[in-house]
Structure formats: C-alpha cells, structure tokens
Computed example of a mutant assay.
Amino acid sequence: MTDQAKKRPEFRNINVFSDLPTYRLPWAGKVSILHRISGMLMFILLPFVFWMFDTSLSSEISFATFKGAFNEGLGFVPGWLIKLATLGLIWGYLHHLCAGIRHILVDMNHERITKQWGASSAIAVLVVSLGLTIVLGAKLFGLY
C-alpha cells in the first residue's frame, strides 16, 4: 500500500447509533434483510392465516363472519386494521417469493454473478413485489 492510498476504516466495535446510520447498504443487502423480515412477518401472522383459512371454508355462516370482519371489523378490531394486516401479509409473501427466487438464481449461478447484476436484480425484486402488492392491495381495499 502506498502512502497516498487512503486506508479503509476499521470497525472493531460498531456503535448502532453513530456507525449504522452512516453505513450505505447496497440494494442486494437491503433486499436480503427485507427477505428475512418478510419471513418473520409471515411466521408471526401464521395464526391470522389459519383463522382466515378456517373461517372462510367452515360454513356459509363463518364465511359471512369472515367477510364482515373485513368490512365492519371483528369485536374491538376495526375492519381497516384487518385489511392492513392482510396487506402486510400479502407484501410479506410476495417479497419473500421474489427474493427467494433471486436467492436461488444467485446460488445456481454464483460464479457468473456481478455487482451490477446483484444490484439490478435486487431493484427488480423490490419493483415487482411492491407492484404486485399495490395491485392486490387495490383489490383488497375495493378500488376495482
């Protein structure tokens, strides 16, 4: 290393409050973190998924309760909050699916992956998952 070359900073103890806000995470890193968050969100909302599945298929009366929960609410929980939780679940599933496909492609072609491909595929995952979430969210909230 020459004297003129700038030495990279060394972090031995990373301070969450001072170091992390200045760290620029690449798009691939952001998508990877969101992949983990979406998996955790789907796991946490699993009882809600089971409730939706059971209530929608048990009988005609339970299906009416299911529809009423989305329209008027259920007990002290307003309908918009149930729709918002469902929208979060939709985003979690779609993002986890798209990012999972990206991770599989990276694992299959890891010798040929470049930084440019990693960044562009990560942005594509975000665009596709958010676009599909907007389309399904519009349907969920009755916009079409």
Rank of each mutant, 00 (worst) to 15 (best):
M1V: 10
Q4C: 06
N15T: 00
F17M: 14
S18E: 14
D19L: 10
T22V: 14
T22N: 08
R24C: 14
S32T: 11
S32L: 14
S32Y: 09
I33P: 01
L41P: 01
M42R: 14
F43I: 11
L46M: 03
F48H: 06
W51A: 02
W51L: 06
M52K: 02
F53R: 04
L57C: 05
I61N: 11
F63Q: 09
A64D: 07
F66W: 14
F66D: 01
A69C: 08
L74E: 00
V77R: 13
P78K: 14
G79Q: 01
L81P: 05
A85C: 15
T86S: 15
T86I: 08
G88R: 09
L89M: 11
I90S: 12
L94G: 07
L94Q: 11
H95C: 12
H96F: 15
I104P: 01
V106P: 04
M108S: 11
M108C: 09
H110G: 05
H110V: 13
E111I: 13
T114I: 13
K115L: 11
A119R: 07
S121M: 02
V125I: 11
G131Y: 11
I134R: 01
L136T: 05
A138W: 06
K139Q: 07
F141S: 01
G142I: 02
L143F: 04
Y144Q: 03
Y144R: 03
Y144M: 09
